[in-house]
């Protein structure tokens, strides 16, 4: 029975051995196995092909497969390391590992920087920050005048852009986060420590013994 199950899961594109993934991430082997249960659920919610499509990601986040959101798009793009439009199991586990409570803060800081560097220039630019603020306001049905938005962006830039060149580089971002640690709050998911309880894998064999 164990062998049949093993053969079955290894046919799924992008499947990687839990031992390999555990070795590269903050997860244990049993946590990776539990994540596979979550992954199976997410990757078969619309198209049953063992891959998480954008619509499936949106469905899981917003309970609606058609809800477009700038930040969800950015997260999806960062998870989709191969840039082939879908999230494979290995990509899912490696990316989620950034959000593990035991993962180094430096990894979380870097991930957040890449998340907010919308145009991959190596900087968070003023226009990008404004675009994100506007997207958040739209998502929240909040209406602020352009002057107020400009003031919020200006104030943040005056605090973060230490060399005053109009963009936030990695070093400035690190310093800004050190002064405002709450900015990384959403980079840690306490759930990941209890993932084996939330998604027991019910695997009767151990991959380690293979």
């Amino acid at each position: 029975m164990g062998c049949l199950f093993t053969k079955h899961i290894k046919q799924i594109p992008g499947y990687e051995e839990p031992t390999v993934l555990a070795g590269e991430t903050s997860f244990t082997v049993s946590e990776v196995e539990a994540l596979y249960e979550l992954f199976k659920k997410l990757s078969s919610s619309i198209i049953v092909d063992g891959l998480i499509h954008k619509e499936e990601f949106q469905l899981a986040l917003f309970k609606n497969s058609n809800t477009r959101n700038l930040f969800a798009d950015r997260i999806f793009d960062l998870f989709d390391v191969k840039r082939n439009g879908v999230i494979e199991f290995g990509e899912f586990v490696r990316s989620l590992s950034v959000f593990h409570p035991n993962t180094a803060i430096s990894e979380k800081i870097e991930f957040a920087f890449r998340l907010y560097d919308l145009r991959h220039t190596g900087f968070i630019e003023r226009e990008e920050l404004k675009e994100m603020v506007l997207a958040l306001l739209k998502e929240s049905d909040l209406c602020l005048s352009d002057d107020v938005v400009e003031t919020i962006v200006d104030k943040t830039f005056s605090e973060a852009d230490l060399n005053g060149d109009g963009k936030i580089d990695r070093e400035e971002w690190k310093e800004f986060v050190a002064r405002n640690p709450s900015l990384l709050k959403n980079m840690t998911l306490p759930y990941l420590k209890d993932i084996t309880i939330a998604f027991p894998s019910f695997v009767l064999y151990s991959e380690v013994e293979d």
Partner: peptide, 25 residues
Amino acid sequence: RPVMMNAFELISTSQGLNLGTLFEK
């Protein structure tokens, strides 16, 4: 007061960044 908000604090409240919802059954 909105003008005192840190733009990144504001952004970090986005539902699109709340991956905790992935774990909801």
